[in-house]
């Protein structure tokens, strides 16, 4: 086979791969929009659900999902920042680096249902905290911790050494170098990681369904220790009543809202990353 033909074949096969990938994505989005759009209305977004979701709206579910991920982000960010700074600026020992990396990757590889079971056993059974949205936030923060930590670490660690040296040569101590030079430049990495993590966490059902959510009868929580309802668990509940066309319709509607939320987070992450790249290239 001559090289030119080989080249063209390769080009064609990657082209087909891209085409198939886009097709699957378009097909999925198409179906969700096609089925979900008829359910969507202002009433659907602002009303509470009734008849186990078969009628009414999903305002509590939207609220519950956003509450869970906001607190997950708040819990995760300081831990991720601390770990990333320690790993990048203080830790010299290669073995400890490898151990921490292994832990982070292992945490990332744990199936999400295991997080749910862990939460159930540890927080609900042993600590006896009951079914609570806050426990859900803690569990979700553990799930997104690896993504946020690695993303923050990469952005801090990739800041050229000359910035560290130039600022410490001016008499800044290590702490000032970290706060004044490294964190401002590394922050976009943390936020990008956080948004990617959130985009994943908001769609998770398994880790929160045993510990943080109830399927009906929830309202706005008035304390940390009450259950909420969320979009993914609501969709699960509606899918179980699939014989009822009204419930199915609302399941599609809720799915569309969830997908839109995920897309918002993913695109913001992409946007922040691109913006930061153009700044650092200038």
């Amino acid at each position: 086979m001559n090289r030119k033909l080989q080249n063209n074949l390769f080009y064609a096969s990657v082209g087909i791969a891209v085409f198939v990938c886009s097709l699957i994505l378009l097909f999925l989005f198409g179906i969700i929009i096609w089925n979900g759009l008829p359910a969507l209305s202002l009433d659907f977004l602002t009303n509470t659900s009734a008849e186990f979701g078969a009628s009414g709206g999903i305002v509590y579910q939207i609220f519950g999902s956003i509450l869970l991920i906001i607190f997950a982000a708040l819990i995760c960010l300081p831990i991720a920042l601390g770990t990333a700074i320690y790993k990048s600026e203080y830790l010299k020992n290669d073995t400890v680096h490898k151990i921490i990396n292994t832990l982070i990757y292992s945490l990332n590889g744990i199936p999400s249902v295991i997080f749910g079971i862990f939460g159930l056993i540890f927080f609900v059974n042993i600590l006896n905290m009951g079914i609570s949205w806050f426990v859900g936030s803690i569990i979700l923060s553990m799930m997104i911790l690896p993504t946020v930590t690695l993303s923050t670490y990469q952005s801090i660690n990739s800041i050229p050494t000359v910035y560290r040296e130039s600022s410490s040569a001016l008499g800044l101590n290590k702490w000032q170098v970290i706060v004044q030079v490294l964190l401002p430049q590394g922050f976009s990495g943390a936020i990008t990681g956080l948004l990617i993590g959130i985009a994943r966490a908001i769609g998770e059902t398994a880790p929160i369904m045993f510990i943080a959510t109830a399927f009906s009868g929830v309202e706005f929580p008035s304390s940390f220790l009450e259950p909420v309802s969320t979009l993914p668990t609501h969709i699960l509940a509606l899918a179980q009543q699939a014989t009822n066309p009204a419930a199915l319709q609302n399941a599609w509607g809720a799915s569309l809202v969830l997908v839109i939320l995920v897309i918002i987070f993913s695109i913001s992450a992409l946007f922040i990353r691109l913006r930061h790249q153009t700044i650092s290239k200038r």
Binding site: P160, V162, Y163, E165, S166, S167, S168, A169, L170, G171, L172, N173, Q176, V181, P184, Q185, I279
Partner: peptide, 29 residues
Amino acid sequence: VAQLRTQIGMVFQKPCVFPKSIKENVLFG
């Protein structure tokens, strides 16, 4: 060491300005 470096300053081979304004760069240390 930080105090020592305020008495012994250093300029490097490649200029490295901080992503700030000209004035803020002069005042940075």
